[in-house]
Simulated assay, not measured.
Amino acid sequence: MYPLAIRLLLTLTLVLSSAVSHADLFYRIDIDTRSVTGSSGLIELSLAGLEDSPLAAAELQSLYGGAGEVLDQFGNVAGDLSSTLTLASDMGFADILQQQQFGDVLSLQLRLAGDWLDTLADAGLTFAIKLWSADFQPLLNVDETGDLLRLQLQPGNGVQVELLSEFVMVRPIAIASPPILSLAFIGLVALLCYRRTAT
C-alpha cells in the first residue's frame, strides 16, 4: 500500500508543480517625500507595452501615505491608491494621475502578474512611477522623463529595476502562495512515507 501511496503523492506533486510554473512577483516600493513635507502634488503610475508584448498587470496598494482624488486616467485602469489600483496592458498603455499629499514615506506594495512571466518574447513592458508638484514640475528625480523608477518587465526573464532617484527604494517580497505551501506539505508526507517503507 505504501508504494502506491507514495506514487500517488509524487504524481500530485508533479501536477501542482506544473500549476505553479511561475509565481506572481511582489515588491515593496518606498518613496521618501520628507524633503517636500507639507506640499501637495501628484503621483503618476503607468504600465506600457508594445503591440506584440505579452499581457501584464500591475496591482498596487498604498501601505502608508494617503492618496487623493484621481485627476486623469487612460487605458485599462481599475480602482485607485486609496484602496487597490490595477493597471493592465491589454490596451497597450495604462496610466493614472492621482493627487498626493507629501510628507513622510510613501510606501506601495506592487504585484506583477500576467502572461509575460513565462512567455518568451522580444517586446517587453515598462512600469514607471513619477511624482509631480502642484504646478506639474517633476519631483525628487534627475531623469529627463520624470521617472523616479522604472521596472523593465522582460518576458520570461524577470524584472530589471532602474532606480532614477536617491529617494526611492525597491525590494522584492517573498510571499508563499497556497499551491506552493500545499506542494511543500505533500513533499513532506511523501518523504515520511518513503522513510517508513525503507525501515
Rank of each mutant, 00 (worst) to 15 (best):
P3I: 02
L4T: 08
R7H: 09
L8K: 07
L9R: 01
L12G: 13
L16N: 09
S17E: 09
S18L: 15
A19T: 06
V20S: 08
S21P: 00
S21N: 05
H22T: 13
H22R: 05
F26L: 11
Y27V: 02
I29L: 05
I29P: 02
I29K: 06
D30R: 12
D30T: 10
D32M: 06
R34P: 05
S35D: 10
V36Q: 06
V36A: 06
S39E: 13
S39Q: 09
S40P: 00
S40Q: 12
G41C: 11
L42S: 05
E44L: 12
L45I: 13
S46E: 14
L47F: 10
E51G: 11
D52I: 09
S53W: 06
A56E: 05
E59P: 00
Q61K: 15
Q61G: 08
Q61S: 14
Q61F: 08
S62L: 13
L63M: 13
A67V: 14
A67I: 07
G68R: 10
G68Y: 09
V70Y: 08
L71M: 14
D72A: 12
F74Q: 10
G75C: 04
G75S: 03
N76H: 14
V77S: 12
V77L: 13
A78T: 14
G79S: 07
L81V: 02
S83Y: 05
T86M: 12
L87S: 00
L87D: 00
M91C: 01
L97A: 06
Q99C: 04
Q100H: 03
Q100D: 04
D104N: 11
D104F: 03
D104V: 01
V105G: 01
S107K: 11
S107W: 02
L112R: 14
D115I: 04
D118M: 13
T119N: 06
L120K: 11
A121Y: 10
D122I: 10
L125D: 01
T126K: 08
F127N: 04
F127R: 10
A128L: 01
I129T: 15
W132S: 10
W132I: 11
D135K: 10
F136E: 14
Q137W: 08
E144Y: 05
E144S: 12
E144C: 00
T145P: 03
G146T: 10
D147F: 11
D147P: 06
D147N: 15
L149G: 01
R150F: 03
Q154I: 15
Q154Y: 05
P155K: 09
N157Q: 15
G158C: 11
G158S: 08
G158K: 09
V159R: 04
Q160T: 12
E162T: 09
L163E: 14
L163G: 02
E166F: 07
F167S: 09
V168K: 12
M169Q: 15
R171P: 02
I173T: 00
I173K: 03
A174N: 04
A174R: 05
I175P: 02
A176S: 05
P178Q: 02
I180V: 12
S182L: 10
A184H: 04
G187S: 13
L191M: 07
L192E: 01
L192T: 08
L192D: 00
Y194V: 05
R196M: 12
R196I: 15
T197S: 07
A198M: 09
A198C: 03
